[in-house]
Write a protein that binds this DNA or RNA. Structure first.
Length: 424
RNA sequence: GGAGAGGUGGCCGAGUUGGUCGAAGGCGGCGGUUUGCUAAACCGUUAUACGGUUAAUAGCCGUAUCGGGGGUUCAAAUCCCCCCCUCUCCGCCA
């Protein structure tokens, strides 16, 4: 959520920035008009209230002096009903304004490249050597079936499309990756491990920005105000929702493994096959809550923390800065990490590292006190995948496959998996 | 799921025959006095949001906030209704 004052006092700047995302200037001017009306209502209502309060005191005094107060009572009855009406109008107005604000995306950071499609994302750096095969490499689904690591058909029988059984070494590899990632984040990084609730309410999802706009992407529990989390970002960032933190609590750095659930309404095409896009997938997330000063350095370090895992796994990847059209609703700036997928001869997203400035903090009323006597301020929030586990599983199979169909396990992961090769 | 008890300011805790209660008292925090230093003691201060005024995110004025929402009333922390949460007991269950 953007600051209402900023929207109304620097409308032109806001309109100009949001036009890069294709937001209509009318959205902003409507909000300012709603706010003007709201202010007028507040002033009228408060004048009535003031009158009520002062006359109430008179009534108390008159009664103590054993005098009549019938005129005052009659008069106040009228004022009370006027105030009531006005209050209802004001409430409706404020609800409208709040709702309008919740649908406005975040401002883009000045460094975000201009672009209309993901093709205009800008490559920042590349790491690792692409594998060279003396044979035609298989895709992860073919490899997985040959090695009995998964069963997509049986999952479809039970749950429909976009679900998978991982079996044997496939399941072990998944579990090993989760532990490996959490260990790196907590032992080499300064992240505090959390295991959060996987079901959360609507306010929580509004706090991080999934609601109200992206309701169609979520799984909702029938007959309850609860949703399956689409990412651990939601419970981790909301951990301190509504609280005022002391300065020494910052920076907050959390990591969590969770399953993630997404309805994937509207996605199609090449991602339908295999494990790339599932309704349920595992992810290890990292989240930071930091002071606004130097918060962009935290975006760099958070991105590097995610990169470190790819490096340890010896997986070739590149870092891209998302362009204006590709940057998500709540983010001011995002780096994607893309891992090399040999069967597709392309880099595919495996992590998304985003800065939200105070957009989420404002929505969830999360604040901190810079000094013990200072007024509370909104901190900045950031998050990234470190990493998407299923896609890492895919990348390992495809990048380390051998001519005979076996798959080598990267050295750093071998202690976790308990073998250096998966073969028939 | 059933029965009972309770939710008050950073914390503890008064306040329920409705009115002078944003709310006693204590603790903690902040500022100060005293004092070789520290401690103790004493004095003062101590919420958030919104609106107005203003150069001001300083002051001042106003309004709201006693789990959330609604109702009764001129007036509600106090009365009524609904919901949420916590605790105790019972049931069930990994």
């Amino acid at each position: 959520m953007l600051d209402l004052k900023l929207i109304c006092e620097e409308s032109n700047r806001v309109i100009q920035n949001l036009s890069r995302r294709g937001v209509d200037s009318k959205t902003i001017s409507d909000i300012c008009a709603l706010n003007q009306d709201r202010k007028k209502m507040i002033q009228e209502l408060e004048a009535l209230r003031q009158k009520q309060n002062s006359v109430s005191k008179d009534i108390v005094r008159l009664k103590q002096e054993k005098k009549e107060a019938t005129d005052e009572l009659k008069n106040m009855k009228k004022v009370a009903s006027e105030a009531k009406d006005l209050e209802l109008k004001l409430q409706a107005q404020e609800a409208k304004l709040k709702d309008a604000l919740l649908w406005v995306p975040n401002l883009l950071h000045e460094s975000v490249p201009e672009g209309k499609t993901s093709a205009q994302n800008v490559e920042i750096r590349k790491w690792g050597k692409l594998p060279e095969f003396q044979f035609t490499p298989l895709d992860h689904e073919q490899l997985g079936e040959k090695l009995n690591l998964l069963s997509i058909k049986r999952a479809a029988t039970l749950s429909g499309s976009r679900f998978t059984f991982l079996t044997g070494w496939g399941a072990k590899l998944e579990r090993s990756l989760i532990n490996f990632m959490l260990d790196i984040n907590t032992q080499e990084g300064a992240y505090h491990e959390i295991f959060p609730p996987l079901l959360v309410n609507a306010e929580t999802l509004t706090g991080t920005g999934q609601l109200p706009k992206f309701k169609q992407d979520l799984f909702k529990i029938e007959n309850h105000d609860l949703y399956l989390i689409p990412t651990a970002e939601v419970p981790l960032t909301n951990f301190y929702r509504g609280e005022i933190l002391s300065k020494d609590a910052l920076p907050v750095q959390f990591t969590a493994y969770t399953p993630c659930f997404r309805s994937e309404a509207g996605s199609y095409g090449k991602d339908v096959r295999g494990l790339i896009r599932q309704h349920q997938f595992n992810k290890v997330e990292i989240v930071k809550i930091v002071e606004p000063e130097h918060s962009y350095q935290h975006l760099e370090s958070l991105t590097q923390d995610a990169e470190k895992i790819l490096q340890r796994l010896e997986l070739p990847y590149r870092v891209v800065a998302l362009c204006s059209a590709d940057t998500g609703f709540g983010a001011t700036k995002t780096y994607d990490l893309e891992v090399w997928i040999p069967s597709q001869k392309t880099y595919r997203e495996i992590s998304s590292c985003s800065h939200f400035e105070d957009f989420q903090a404002r929505r969830m009323n999360l604040r901190y006190r810079p000094t013990s006597t200072a007024k509370p301020q909104y901190p900045h929030t950031l998050n990234g995948s470190a990493l998407a586990v299923g896609r890492t599983w895919v990348a390992i199979l495809e990048n380390f496959q051998q001519k005979d169909g076996s798959v080598l396990i990267p050295k750093a992961l071998q202690p976790y998996v308990g073998t250096d090769i998966i073969k028939m």
